[in-house]
Amino acid sequence: MHSVPLRRAVTALASALALAGAAASPAAAAPRTVELVNLGDSYSAAYGTGGLQQADIPRECAQGTGRDHVDKLASHPRVEVTLDAACAGYTTHEVRALVEDEPLVRDALAEADAVTLTMGGNDIQWGRFVQACSAPAEAQYGPGPCDTMLAQAPGLIASAAGSAAETVAAVDETSDARVVVLGYPHLFDAGQDGPLVSAERAAQLNDWTDELNTALAAGVEEEGAVFVDVTDRFRGHGVGSADPWILFGPEAGEHNLHPTERGYLSGYFPGLLGQLARAC
């Protein structure tokens, strides 16, 4: 495994993403453009921002069509997103298969200075937890199915975190880039009962999101990646809040329980940009 983060990635990112905005001294060399590759699941693929499109890779790979944190990062004058291969529905294993087996991805990673991604949520099939623990499901089937799912959470989370670490290691084998893994927000406002989920179940599901983020952070940081926790930036904006940044409703369809465009731009983007700048 490569030693990460390497000095060339740190130097490039520091030049391109410094937030101070001070002009370079006359003697300083002009900062070069940072080449960035985006991988991961639907939370890296702009799901929730609009329609659907096929990613520019020769595999089935769905992405949203609106603006997200990656799109905004691409507008930075010193950042070039050379490949966006985030795919909705992908597990850590599928992301790793892209890294190991897809020539287009491997070629982009070989030249990359930074790699960004979210992963792990599909490994534990988080949607099944929400379905089993929803208020309508509990009204029909009682608390048993939800309690059974929640009892399985520790093992599923441990497995997802271990696989995420292996995926970072696979990136390291291909690239000297700095790897930045972003976590997941709380999906629900746990302040009161709602039509989707009770306050008690919302709090439990949010607690397990925290457990997943903690396990992912430990696993990927062991492999030299940076982990960005976004829960504080999304706080107060879950489903059921006065200003939700998470989609829920019949009109959202398959985009349900994904960030809105504002969620990506106000929740994910500042955390990503700030962490890259601080890390450099």
Results as ranks from 00 to 15, higher is better:
277 A>S: 15
99 V>H: 09
154 P>Y: 01
163 S>G: 09
260 T>Y: 03
2 H>G: 03
23 A>C: 08
104 L>I: 00
224 G>N: 07
29 A>K: 15
51 G>I: 03
228 V>D: 06
218 A>D: 10
31 P>C: 13
230 V>N: 05
77 P>T: 06
36 L>C: 00
125 Q>H: 12
131 Q>T: 15
198 S>L: 02
51 G>M: 10
236 G>R: 10
27 A>E: 06
266 S>R: 06
231 T>M: 05
107 D>W: 04
112 A>G: 08
223 E>H: 10
231 T>N: 02
55 A>I: 00
116 T>N: 02
172 D>F: 10
41 D>E: 08
11 T>P: 05
61 C>I: 00
48 G>S: 05
213 N>G: 09
243 D>A: 12
106 R>P: 01
162 G>L: 09
238 G>S: 08
157 I>E: 10
110 A>W: 08
274 G>T: 03
254 E>N: 07
138 E>M: 12
156 L>E: 05
251 E>G: 11
238 G>V: 01
58 P>D: 01
107 D>G: 00
62 A>T: 11
176 D>I: 05
215 A>R: 05
124 I>T: 07
166 E>H: 06
37 V>D: 01
217 A>E: 08
280 C>A: 13
114 A>Q: 12
33 T>L: 07
176 D>M: 09
29 A>R: 15
120 G>R: 04
117 L>P: 08
192 Q>G: 01
